[in-house]
């Protein structure tokens, strides 16, 4: 069973709809620790403010069960958008500590480093670069592109944890990961066949 973690932040139905489309018929949306503990895979979606997201996660009482399942029992988890940023130690957007499962931080786009005049948020499609040896990107169509909506982006301590990159004004980490823990800044559930392939890979290889 795959559980989409419901901590009242953002739109979960479209994630579920896409998972079902790619053949994951047992994807459920839940905020119940007893359901989450039985999951063989987890998805942590989310949109909005970093501190709001962390506070909601705490309020939902799920931090302990997530720590146990993800860190100790190595249950695969895919963070999406804010859900990916929450995997980092913290964000310039707020003062709450993140889950800190990946040695990375979340920072505001530095417009002074942009090589062209662009507005933030970065809202739209971007091509991505990835290492196709990583199972998450297996059989990914050429010139893959994904849909992004964000003002902040992730930065890893170790280059090896930066699984996929994109460019907006400059190159940034579009996805980070270590072992069973993965986070993508973009929205696979809104990214046509590219997102479908990524979701399919997550349910197949993790």
């Amino acid at each position: 069973m795959l559980v989409i973690i419901d901590y009242k932040v953002g739109n979960l139905t479209s994630v579920q709809k896409m998972l079902k489309k790619v053949g994951c018929s047992d994807a459920v949306i839940s905020s119940d620790p007893e359901v989450i503990v039985k999951a063989s895979k987890l998805v942590l979606p989310g949109v909005g403010h970093f501190d709001y997201g962390m506070k909601q996660l705490k309020l939902s009482g799920l931090i302990d069960v997530l720590n146990t399942q993800v860190v100790e029992h190595k249950i695969p988890i895919l963070g999406i958008c804010l859900g990916a940023q929450l995997l980092t130690r913290g964000s310039e957007e707020g003062s709450e500590k993140g889950l800190g499962w990946i040695e990375a931080d979340t920072i505001l786009f530095d417009q002074s480093k942009f090589d062209q005049k662009l507005k933030i948020p970065h809202m739209g499609w971007s091509n991505v670069n990835f290492n196709s040896d990583i199972p998450l990107f297996k059989d990914m169509p050429l010139a893959s592109r994904f849909y992004f909506v964000h003002k902040y982006h992730m930065v890893c301590d170790e280059g090896a944890d930066n699984l996929v990159s994109a460019k907006y004004g400059y190159k940034f980490a579009a996805g980070i990961g270590k072992n069973n823990i993965i986070g993508v800044q973009f929205h696979p559930e809104k990214s046509h066949k590219f997102g479908m392939q990524l979701m399919r890979n997550f349910i197949t290889y993790y």
Partner: peptide, 8 residues
């Protein structure tokens, strides 16, 4: 409509 739209 949303069920058919795997895009924003």
């Amino acid at each position: 409509i949303a069920g058919e739209a795997f895009m924003p």
